[in-house]
């Protein structure tokens, strides 16, 4: 029994440690700048979870993170280090916003699916290049997908400043989408929208897919041991490509949902790094559906708490960014828990 508990314990410690360190680092920063850490954390907790509206705000903030976390997880589990969800998020958001006003006279039941599918397809296509480069030429996908993020940001920024700039509106934004393209709100007056349910459902679906389908099985085995996979007849390079594109599809969809659900248009600076936070979420959640959901809610809570905390205290919102960054940094660190694993049985 004691032996059986050990792996579970060390796994739990491995997940909790990055958070614990982030909390400690945040406390040091707060204390050093004359704030009272415990008080600030207490305020953050109540701002994130104190009451229906605050919870709704947290879940709204978690919505894009669920899908960017999922996009990262889909790639990571098959051994692909895709860091390009951020770019897909921008492109998907832009495409959904453009379709959302260009096809504004379509009925919602048609318009919303078409806009979201369009967003997903563009996201998927965006990563075909790095996928092919990795599968055929062995080009490191980390650098190519990272570079594509910047290209996507610049490209969409050019589009909203030029060809797609809304007439007469403020700089760097498309026209607002048609009302019929907006995802319905779940708990008015809060901003929680249907996108949360869609995202949650997709993560749950991923959980089932990864456990119960042939494709889910193959992608996992390829991620664990590509040489073994090849020897048992699983096509490794096409799995790489497929999972890369799937990751892009999800990243694009995430942007589309964000545009139709919350922003209702595309603006420059559309994402404050959701794609990158998604990487931390997938790593912390160990690519599991439940892990992604929990990690997305924690990150969502951090940002929703940060957004309103400023109103009630003099603590700058950036404490949240510092903690998010710290979680990312330590999410991939090895702390020596369960080092004994891997020893000869």
């Amino acid at each position: 029994m004691g032996v059986a508990m050990l792996p579970a314990l060390s796994r739990a410690a491995g997940v909790a440690a990055p958070f614990a360190l982030a909390v400690v680092i945040g406390a040091i920063v707060l204390a050093a700048t004359g704030h009272e850490p415990l008080g600030v954390y207490g305020l953050m907790a109540s701002e994130a979870f104190g009451g229906e509206r605050r919870i709704a705000a947290t879940l709204t903030a978690a919505t894009p993170l669920l899908l960017t976390g999922l996009a990262a997880a889909v790639a990571f589990r098959s051994g692909i280090f895709n860091v390009g969800a951020e770019g897909c998020f921008y492109l998907g958001g832009m495409v959904a916003a453009v379709l959302g006003f260009a096809l504004g006279d379509w009925p919602s039941v048609l318009l919303i699916p078409v806009a979201l599918v369009g967003a997903a397809i563009v996201g998927g296509l965006w990563l075909v290049g790095p996928g092919v480069l990795r599968a055929r030429l062995g080009v490191d996908e980390v650098v190519t997908t990272l570079m594509l993020n910047f290209i996507a940001v610049d490209l969409t920024s050019w589009l909203v400043n030029g060809p797609l700039l809304a007439r007469g509106s403020a700089n760097s934004a498309t026209a607002p989408i048609a009302v019929g393209a907006e995802l319905p709100r779940l708990l008015p007056p809060t901003t929680l929208h249907l996108g949360f349910v869609i995202s949650l459902a997709l993560v749950a679906l991923y959980g089932l897919w990864s456990r119960f389908t042939v494709a889910g099985f193959r992608s996992r085995i390829v991620g664990l041991n590509a040489r073994f996979s090849r020897a048992v007849g699983i096509h490794v390079s096409s799995t790489f490509l497929r999972m890369m594109v799937l990751s892009g599809l999800i990243g694009g969809l995430a942007g589309g949902i964000h545009a139709l659900g919350l922003v209702h248009r595309f603006v420059a600076g559309f994402s404050p790094g959701y794609g990158f936070t998604g990487i931390a979420i997938a790593l912390l959640g160990r690519n599991s559906a439940l892990g992604i959901i929990l990690a997305a809610i924690v990150f969502g809570a951090l940002s929703s708490a940060g957004a309103t905390m400023q109103l009630f205290s003099d603590v700058p919102i950036e404490i949240v960014e510092i903690m998010q960054g710290a979680v990312m940094i330590f999410a991939v660190a090895k702390f020596g828990f369960g080092q004994a694993r891997g020893a000869r049985a």
Binding site: F217, R220, I221, L224, N225, F228, S229, A231, V232, I234
Partner: peptide, 19 residues
């Protein structure tokens, strides 16, 4: 490294390639 996927389960190793 090639004959088995050590980190995967016994049943995974049994059906790998036959899934």
């Amino acid at each position: 490294e090639e004959g088995l996927c050590l980190t995967a389960s016994i049943s995974d190793n049994f059906i790998a390639g036959r899934e």
